[in-house]
């Protein structure tokens, strides 16, 4: 029956493409979480009235984040081609998409991290300082745990944007469902392939959203 409904769909290829999309998304989300968290923390801590207040450094980080956040992703991929070639040794395939995906997504998430950290009650940070907590203890025992719901809902939103980016990356040769929808669906005029690829992407997005919402709700004891 499936063959009748979707005559052009090769299910083995779909499975491979889904795997590639999941692979690219998972690696990017993980790397974005770590990189964005570090960038966001530095951005927050060097900001006005915080532990490492430093206007110069803060200005530079903010500028870098804003620049990379503002470049349309499809252009960022092209701009980064030489860089990708240098570190991955290839400009085609799932691995080749990773540098652009991470560099595109991490600054976006860094801003969300900063916003989340700003929501942490200053009084609680002051209380930790009054107990003799050092910078590391304040970061790992106060800032991160107290902003965790915001950090998780932020990575959920970013993760969904990343799925969208992987589809775009597919158009310039990254593989995955986006690539399949474009090459086999659009260019060969096989609408059923595009349709199946879209449905799978939607399912992935919904699953990420549900997981993110559930975890956020469980963590929030306020």
């Amino acid at each position: 029956m499936l063959t009748n409904l979707f005559p052009h769909v090769e299910w083995d290829a779909i499975l491979d493409a889904t795997y590639e999309t999941l692979y690219m998304s998972a690696v990017t989300i993980l790397a974005t979480f770590i990189l964005g968290l570090i960038l966001g923390l530095v951005l927050f801590l060097t900001g006005k009235g915080n532990m490492w207040q430093n206007r110069f450094f803060n200005g530079i980080i903010a500028a870098v984040i804003n620049v990379f956040r503002s470049i349309p992703f499809i252009i960022l991929i092209i701009l980064l081609l030489p860089f990708t070639n240098a570190i991955v040794g290839d400009i085609i395939g799932a691995d080749a998409a990773l540098p652009a995906l991470i560099i595109g997504a991490a600054p976006f998430y860094a801003r969300m991290v900063e916003i989340g950290l700003r929501e942490v009650d200053r009084g609680v940070i002051e209380a930790a300082r009054s107990m003799g907590a050092g910078a590391g203890q304040i970061i790992f025992k106060v800032l991160i745990p107290e902003s965790l719901p915001a950090l998780i809902s932020g990575i959920t939103v970013t993760g969904i944007a990343i799925i969208g980016y992987t589809a775009m990356a597919g158009i310039v040769g990254a593989g995955g469902l986006g690539n399949m929808a474009y090459l086999q669906g659009f260019q060969r005029d096989q609408t059923d392939v595009t349709f199946v690829a879209t449905v799978i992407i939607l399912v992935i997005v919904f699953v990420i959203q549900i997981i993110g919402d559930t975890v956020t709700r469980r963590l929030d004891k306020r």
Binding site: M131, Q137, K141, V142, E146, L148, R222
Partner: peptide, 28 residues
């Protein structure tokens, strides 16, 4: 650690239970 402080708005960590909040300065 020998000069502790209490606050008007309590400044407890909402992410920790009562016992974990009390344990916090001991962890530090």
């Amino acid at each position: 650690q020998e000069i502790s402080m209490i606050f008007q708005h309590f400044n407890l960590l909402w992410s920790r239970t009562v016992a974990e909040n009390i344990s916090f300065p001991l962890e530090i």
